[in-house]
Amino acid sequence: MEVDSATVRRIAHLARIKITKAEEKSLENELSGIFEWVKQLDEVDVTDVEPMTSAVQMTLRLRPDKVTDGEKADEVTANAPLKEDGFFVVPKVVE
């Protein structure tokens, strides 16, 4: 197996997705299958090949470092499941 159950648990935690025991088992199989299939990339010689960083050759544009938007607390929090006075409400994070 390319990916074992401990690895599935570890990456699920890194990705902050809770998974059940049953999901863990099927993900172990599915992910192993996918990585097994992806292994064919080992055939490709990539010596001295630069990784692609942009689909189209271009230089990223710069703009003046000025505030162009803002003062929209109500709009920003409009879709929040829990909010108060223009703030997001979260469980206690710092003791």
């Binding site: 990339l41 490709v44 990784p51 692609m52």
Partner: peptide, 9 residues
Amino acid sequence: LKAQKVRTL
């Protein structure tokens, strides 16, 4: 990184 190199090819 490997996949991005393959992409270049």
